[in-house]
Write a protein that binds this DNA or RNA. Structure first.
Lengths: 220, 220, 220, 220
DNA sequence: CATGAATGAGCTTTCATTCAT
DNA sequence: AATGAATGAAAGCTCATTCAT
């Protein structure tokens, strides 16, 4: 599943060739990591010669950046498409999580590129990767904030108000939990997107819900 | 902070030199990643010549494995030392989380080696890395299970019982949330270990607590 | 004589470049030995960059093996081409020896690769080298055995019969004598292939001849 | 057999230590070849530290030269001790050959150093190695010449006279045959020194004998 | 007498990248 | 539109050799 066909067809329009190359690149980067992936392997998997890869995508760095962008866009769109604005906050979150788990399960290499390779600190596209993570976190932050606004009775507002920084922290925690759960579900196998989403909702939503109502856990 | 002093002192006993090398290696691996880190850089940072690194630590792979082991041991011990067996489940978890956030904040490079480089799939020490993650997850799984046993009134037991797989999933989610939160706290700065631990307890504990009592969230 | 031209001509077809590289490799291996020969030197002598050598011939080991094969094939073919099946046993042997001495005199580096480097015991291609020696010895063994069958009057057969192991030993001795003589002729200079062949025939043939007739030398 | 004991006994007199080192060196050089043998391995096998090897034997090159000299001396002496001046030429040669085969079978590593590693052309001690071969060849040349003088009736002298160069060539051939036979006997196993000597006498002596009597083989 | 500590230099190998066609 | 030919630069690793004790 997801393996790129390497039938070497000649004379394809540029756009198609580019997609083939990026498919091969995502697969290779996802499985090997940025440094360990070689342009040779990518070109061969794409069924083209190396110079063509350079002609179309300029450099390994740019190729990787393009992969990040494409996969991030695909994931974001999948999640956003699933979140219907009219629903209640918890339903929105559930739908988003379910879409997230489904998409990552269906595109493991793409997800690997986003998730695993996101840590390539010293590399020159670190900024690009960081930006993607920010965007996703911001999206979730928005969801949580919206939920907070919506789900809490005005009377409780003052006490319950979550500091902005706390919301950001929660978003990070949620994203991390989802990522980790997705990886685990992928490796373990047999865990459906719905189950993962349910598990995470149970784990986190009740906590979020209470938080928004002003309840707090504290040592002692 | 954490930068290794590179004063080139000659003729040190082997044990000391080995620690210096591993310090340098952790720093370099943590900041660059396994592949991007070069033995030259590590040696220079350690203030020794490359052959000495090989003489003492045999190969890049073994060096990395040794780093993984050292840092994992340090983190595990820090967490375990903080968790007093006599305490209640939530206090235990809070203490563990606080120790975790404190340790990772104090050893960002070591944490990076464990967390970020944990994804080096094709590399030959992947097993080592995976084992570490398993251990940590197993530890957390144990905590959750213990909490479940302890915190739930016998009457509610039957309904509330969490499937083993769910507990494992929850542990993964919790670890992921903690990891992500730790990374965010580190990057953002100004978020103390106590705050992070509190945030995560609020986020997750109440959920766990409810789960153990048999309450469930479900879409509609 | 035999020195490879290092005119750096660009953009040659692969087959040509490969031959150039192998020429350079044979020369270098022959003069320096396997371990002492460096890929740098081979590449420079071939007039190409090192990566190209690796691109075409994969590794030092494979390159050496390829050299062994090429030179062994050339030598074997030269000898076999000279041995006309119709001739008498002694004429066949003389022709073979003459071709052997001529070929080795004309290709001293190739001969060195086969002869001198044949002793690289610990190296991973030792098997390859050993096989070549076996083949040559087997070829000579065949010649001697054929001569024995042909040159001996049936009446003398029973006594004269040479044990199989003795034939093999004789072949080894003959090959060793030829090798040593070839090396000496090469170094000394001024000794033609015909002279060497004649010397060895005088030295060995009469002995073989007598042996086949059942005459034996024994101490006392 | 021949394996050096590596019991690490301290404070030995220099002469003993030197012999231990050379034993280890001969073994290592013999099995690995000059380049592939490492001073580390030799030192370890000798049960001493590397600096001590350097203190006593100065360099790898000198160490190897010392090995060549020691082993060549041992071999030469073994052969010379076996050749009693009073005997007839053929008995002398048989005795010498038998001693040669016996000694090389008993000291395979030493023999390997002399025989196999003798081909290290580019190395700086090539001269040393060459000298040894010259000496051996000269010794044999002497034997053959003596035999020629002694074994031939004065009347036949004029025609039979072997050119000096031919004698040298014959010596080379004989040495090569003996070397090759010795190697084969060693590898094959189960071939005694006496058998080898007999085989070679049968192979070569009759030829030499006839040669000295003026008989010649010639094509046609 | 003996060694643990240390290194400069070199080796094989790989890779991103570019020409010339 | 596409590629076979080619390389500069760097990485992992090893080794003969030397101090300082």
């Amino acid at each position: 599943m997801g393996a790129v066909k390497s039938v070497r067809a000649k004379r394809m329009p540029r756009a198609v060739r580019e997609q083939q190359m990026m498919d091969a690149a995502v697969q290779t980067f996802g499985q090997r990591g940025y440094r360990a992936a070689s342009m040779d392997e990518i070109a061969e998997l794409a069924g083209v010669s190396k110079p063509l890869v350079y002609l179309y995508l300029n450099s390994k760095e740019e190729l990787f950046t393009a992969c990040i962008r494409r996969e991030a866009k695909a994931l974001t769109e999948a999640v956003q498409a699933a979140v219907e604005p009219g629903l209640s906050a918890d339903r929105q979150m559930w739908a988003g999580l379910e879409a997230f788990f489904r998409h990552t399960a269906e595109n493991p290499d793409g997800w690997s590129v986003l998730h695993h390779q996101a840590c390539t600190h010293g590399e020159p596209f670190a900024a690009e990767v960081a930006k993607m993570r920010e965007e996703i976190a911001a999206f979730v932050t928005g969801l949580i904030a919206a939920a907070a606004r919506q789900g809490v009775p005005p009377a409780a507002h003052r006490d319950a108000e979550l500091a902005e920084r706390d919301v950001a922290g929660l978003a990070q925690a949620l994203v991390g939990a989802a990522e980790s759960l997705a990886a685990w579900a992928n490796e373990t196998g047999g865990v459906s997107a719905k189950e993962s989403a349910g598990l995470l909702m149970n784990f986190a939503w009740t906590g979020l819900d209470r938080l928004m109502r002003g309840e707090r856990w504290s040592p002692q």
